[in-house]
């Protein structure tokens, strides 16, 4: 899947997100530890951040991810802000990127308009 780099500040909630295939993800019961070979860096993620990263699979957008985070954190938590902060951090670290969209795909519960050329 091709993907594009995005400015973390301008991430739209309906953009689908993916992670580089090169990330080495070590899953643990309360989070995960990521090795990022390109940067030779290690990231230690708590459970919420690990859920967000797992959902950056090219099929979920920011809204869908926030909904899953809300399910994890509970109804009173500021799930959307938490998820947005994590996504922005991931983008800044190069752990995720905006996925290229196939035309007409349904994400976040809505059908995306197909740009006609």
């Amino acid at each position: 899947m091709t993907a594009t780099k995005a400015d973390a500040r301008n991430l739209a909630p309906t953009q689908r997100l993916s992670r580089p295939a090169t990330l080495q993800i070590n899953r643990l019961e309360d989070g995960c530890v990521i090795y990022q070979p390109e940067q030779d860096r290690v990231h230690f993620l708590n459970q919420t951040a690990a859920i967000v990263l797992e959902l950056c699979d090219g099929h979920h957008d920011g809204l869908a991810i926030a909904a899953q985070v809300a399910e994890h954190l509970g109804p009173h938590a500021t799930a959307r802000k938490v998820s947005c902060d994590i996504l922005q951090r991931f983008l800044a670290e190069g752990l995720i990127m905006v996925a290229a969209e196939p035309p007409g795909v349904t994400v976040g519960g809505r059908k995306r308009p197909v740009k006609k050329v």
Binding site: D30, G31, F44, N46
Partner: peptide
Amino acid sequence: AKVEMAKQLMMQTLQLTGDLGRHVAQVC
């Protein structure tokens, strides 16, 4: 937390050479 312990153990590794990704996997 296991993630926290993994972090603490990575900080106690006595060698920083070699395949870091493999070291992380070992600790996890």
